[in-house]
Design a protein around this nucleic acid. Structure first.
Lengths: 142, 142
DNA sequence: TATTGTTATACTCTATAACTATA
DNA sequence: TATAGTTATAGAGTATAACAATA
């Protein structure tokens, strides 16, 4: 099953567009209880607490912007600032229980949206997607 | 090749995340000559001219916001306003040749990024993606 | 009177520069 | 002196309300 190079161009374009459209629909049609930049921070904090500087770097915004974003999330009651255990200059931002509930709920909603779409597909189509998912994950991680 | 329901949950989550990560990387690592909301409008105008109201609806922003976006693109020389042929209240926004060059270049860059990732995959993996792309397109269109 | 588009005004997110506290 | 974080200020995008031109 060789894939000609000419088709590789088409595949790159089609695959990119399909991923972008799915991504766009997931964002647009999912729950909108927090703004995208806020949600992105909540997801980052799901596994571990982080300093504002770390959050700013991974989100590619300035530290003052992250201060503002964190302030908003603190006012919403979704994150809390904690003193850093070893360096008093630093601050650790962590999810509150309310913040964790919100982020898990939004992620569940997004998966539900995707599940509803998948439920209309044939077993053969699902099998194709199941095999492709591992490859896509590898592509995204490169 | 039956797919158990429990795996459908996992598949929905994994597939959604993979698509979102690819989409995110395409946006972040591609060319950044125009802002995302500007680029989105340029893409819309690639095939046909459109009125500000049409652009506002499809981009899901208010008409004043679209006026501002169009103003910015006019200043950049990427779009031009033309009088509507039959209704003098309306305005048609269309790509200039410079605008067309810019949007085509950005789209080429994005495909190049995806092409580079695909070029490291095995023929078998490419075959999987080729079959999956049609299914993904159907999912995105639902 | 309804519709299209723009202008007026305010709010939010972003950035750079300046400042405070700590290392 | 360097680093982490915040505050000060300004620029850009968005929205609602008000306005002008046309149907």
């Amino acid at each position: 099953m060789p894939v000609p190079v000419t088709d590789l161009t088409t595949l790159a374009n089609d695959l990119r567009l399909a991923c972008q459209r799915i991504s766009r629909r997931v964002r647009f049609e999912g729950t909108q209880v927090v703004a995208p930049h806020q949600f992105s921070v909540l997801v980052r904090l799901r596994d571990t607490a982080a300093t504002p500087t770390e959050l700013a770097e991974v989100e590619r915004v300035s530290t003052p912007s992250m201060t503002r974003t964190v302030n908003g999330l603190v006012e919403l009651g979704y994150v809390a600032r904690q003193p850093h255990p070893s360096d008093r200059r630093q601050v650790l931002v962590e999810l509150t229980s309310a913040g964790r509930e919100v982020v898990e709920q939004i992620l569940r909603d997004r998966d539900t949206w995707m599940m509803q779409r998948l439920s209309t597909l044939s077993p053969e189509q699902l099998h194709v997607l199941q095999e492709a998912t591992d490859v896509l994950r590898e592509v995204a991680a490169q």
